[in-house]
Nucleic acid binder design. Structure first.
Length: 423
RNA sequence: AGAGAGGUGGCCGAGCGGUCGAAGGCGCACGCCUGGAAAGCGUGUAUGCUCCAAAAGGGUAUCGAGGGUUCGAAUCCCUUCCUCUCUGCCA
């Protein structure tokens, strides 16, 4: 959520910045400014009424104590009008505040200056490409065929017990998943991220805190009877650890990592590109989250990108890094780098990590602040990234490491898998 | 799930209808004291919104949350969430 004061003081700047997302914000921005004005005016009026009625109440108290009941009764009559007026005003204040919040919810984050203009994924800016794309033997298979051939992932079995998009990993496939999770967590903790295990279901307040609600309500599974949401990413529970928290500046930055399964309804996305592991309703991911001083957040973002790079380099997977254009960025992000791994057998790039700086967009909602050197509270910046999402990494490994007689396990994973080939 | 007890500031804990944002203690910060430290003494120490060009300062709200009673609620009533104890169920 953007800050009202910022919008009020930077009307043109906000509109221009959002134009980079191909988002015409002018009418919403003006609505915010008008509602804010109304809200403040209402509050001033309310506070004045309350102030006077509080004074009278105090007088009554003193008169009662002094035993001057008649005088007290006289003043009591006067309070009636204040009571009605304050009720009216406080209702009005609630209404206008709610309206303001609802409009604010509709505004996406303002992109950082270096975000390229553009509407579609084709306009994302490739900033780096590394790793050799292997030349596979004749008859190399896409991962869903390999999964079947070596009996390591069973999509049909998942359909039977849950539905499409809920694969069952078996044998070495399951073990490889576990290995990847452990390996990622180890890399992250070595880099200074503290490991967390968090709930996989969250309440409504948490959904609002990180911005999944109300924008993406339909993308989350909802457990109606208890009014909880299955997490679409560990970002939600982990970032919400810091909801309503004031951090001491000396404790910044905060670095967290967590493995969780992720649940996404992915309503409406079907087709040839979502075969196999490419798009799932449940998948595993190891996430990194940072809380930073504003002046450090972009350096931190670069650091996170570097960190993810080292993992892909160790896995020897060919990857490229994209700086997302305004039209392709998520609602809450100010700047996002996507990592894609090249799937040789599918002959296309698969997104495996998305690293973003949210600046104060999340912390405004979360009320996540830190006490600066002057003792003032100010909003912290939040960042997060996948480090890494499992299914497409797995797809990349299966496809790029396939030989005619089996799938070779990347060297760094062997201590975790305990085997070096799937055959 | 049933019965009971309870949720107060960074923490502990008092207050149970009036001037209470809230005693007292601990912690923390600063100052005095000291060669230095401890102890001691003193001062300060919540957050949101808002008014003021800003600082100083003022107003207002907040004692789990939401409603109600009342001129006035941390205190009374209702709803709800959470915690603890016992019983039940259970990995």
């Amino acid at each position: 959520m953007l800050q009202t004061v910022f919008i009020r003081e930077n009307r043109e700047k906000v509109i221009q910045a959002l134009a980079k997302r191909n988002f015409d914000a002018s009418s919403l921005v003006d609505e915010v400014i008008a509602l804010d004005e109304k809200r403040r005016a209402t509050q001033v009026e309310l506070d004045t009424v309350l102030s006077e009625s509080n004074k009278l109440s105090k007088d009554i108290g003193e008169l009662m104590k002094a035993g001057e009941k008649a005088k007290a009764a006289l003043i009591k009559e006067k309070t009636v009008q204040f009571k009605e007026k304050s009720k009216e005003l406080s209702d009005a204040l609630n209404t206008v505040s709610e309206e303001l919040t609802n409009v604010l919810y509709k505004l996406p984050n303002t992109p950082a200056d270096i975000v390229p203009a553009g509407k579609t994924p084709e306009e994302n800016l490739e900033v780096e490409r590394e790793g050799d794309i292997p030349v596979l033997f004749e008859g190399a298979l896409p991962h869903w065929e390999l999964a079947k051939k070596y009996d390591i992932i069973d999509f049909e079995l998942g359909v039977k017990i849950a539905g499409a998009g809920f694969p069952v990993y078996k044998g070495k496939g399951a073990r490889l998943q576990r290995a990847l999770i452990a390996y990622f967590l180890d890399k992250n903790t070595e880099a200074g991220y503290k490991e967390y295990q968090v709930p996989h279901l969250v309440n409504e307040a948490s959904g609002y805190g990180t911005g999944q609600l109300p924008d993406k309500e339909g993308q989350m599974y909802h457990v109606g009877i208890d009014d909880l949401y299955l997490i679409p990413t560990a970002e939600v529970p982990v970032t919400n650890l810091f909801r309503d928290v004031i951090i001491e500046e000396k404790d910044l930055p905060v670095l967290c990592t967590a493995y969780t399964p992720c649940f996404r309804r992915e309503a409406g996305s079907y087709g040839a590109h979502v075969r196999g592991l490419n798009r799932l309703h449940q998948f595993d991911k190891v996430e990194i989250v940072r809380v930073e001083r504003p002046e450090n957040s972009y350096a931190a973002l670069d650091g996170m990108v570097e960190h993810v790079k080292t993992i892909l380099q160790e896995l020897k997977l060919p990857y490229r890094i994209l700086r997302l254009c305004g039209g392709d960025m998520g609602f809450a992000a100010a700047l996002t780098y996507d990592f894609e791994v090249f799937s040789t057998a599918q002959d296309r790039w698969l997104e495996i990590s998305s690293v973003s700086n949210f600046e104060t967009f999340q912390s405004t909602r979360l009320k996540l602040r830190f006490r600066d050197k002057e003792g003032k509270n100010q909003l912290a910046h939040t960042l997060n990234g996948s480090s890494l999402a499992l299914p497409r990494v797995l797809a990349g490994i299966l496809e790029n490491y396939q030989m005619e007689d089996g799938i070779v396990i990347p060297e760094v994973l062997r201590p975790y898998t305990g085997f070096d080939i799937i055959n």
